[in-house]
Design a protein around this nucleic acid. Sequence first.
DNA 1: CTATATGCAAAGTTTTTGCAATCAG
DNA 2: CTGATTGCAAAAACTTTGCATATAG
Lengths: 139, 139
Amino acid sequence: MAEKGLKATTQRIVIYDALMSDCSHPTAETIHELIKISHPTISLATVYKTLETFVEYQLAQKVSTVEGTYRYDGKTEEHHHIVIDETNEIIDFDDEQIKALMKAHLAQKNIENLEITDISIQIRGRKIDANKTITINKF
Amino acid sequence: MAEKGLKATTQRIVIYDALMSDCSHPTAETIHELIKISHPTISLATVYKTLETFVEYQLAQKVSTVEGTYRYDGKTEEHHHIVIDETNEIIDFDDEQIKALMKAHLAQKNIENLEITDISIQIRGRKIDANKTITINKF
DNA sequence: CTATATGCAAAGTTTTTGCAATCAG
DNA sequence: CTGATTGCAAAAACTTTGCATATAG
């Protein structure tokens, strides 16, 4: 579990589980709400601290959106995000090819003095049918 | 100037000019600092309100980064951002081809129920030589 | 045991709001 | 004139911190 040199405290396990099972890229506040039912004594400060610890130890990622709050993502594998315009809902978008495609494209651009560490794609869009979910079909 | 149905107040003009002449994607606070010298009476609240108005009227864009604050961008044309790891400095990256490239790629993915409204690429990286600037050479 | 992590409450930041006064059209 | 905009100060929202207590290894 959290054996990356991190003490496996109840709080960390609970927060980790909550983060992993919530695909909606929750905020610290949201996670606190989620776990409050089963663990009412875990403080919001601990949630903040713990999430930052996870980011530091690469157990989670911080996602930035054009809202005012930090969001966290339990997926550490390479993936991108689709953000829905009206709701700011975030949907994961796995695509291993994008990065290579972009790197190849950028290589042609000769950008001087920059070593690229990460490329991320944010797709914004709206649901055509607001009631249906968005499905990404691999093939 | 701000003839999009917006009253051209001194405050708006000053804030607009500050935003356009600052390529560093300033925060509201930064803009307030910038204009304080010449217009000490413009309040921070007005800067916040005005920038939001600009976004609403598409005279500016909000940029999201993994910092805690909003940043604004005076460029409304299509462009992408390079964020420098250590400093969170933001550099504009014009590239008209990326969007088409991505759209073509995404079209193959048949994503159901999504109408894409915007695609933006964020490149993270570090400066190879911290003292030199990053240059993007077109050819 | 001991160093690390937690909980609390307090403080720090950043952003928004209500409202009277002001100003552009 | 009149409705939109501003400035102020107060509030809200979000995040961090210090320190005493608790706990995993």
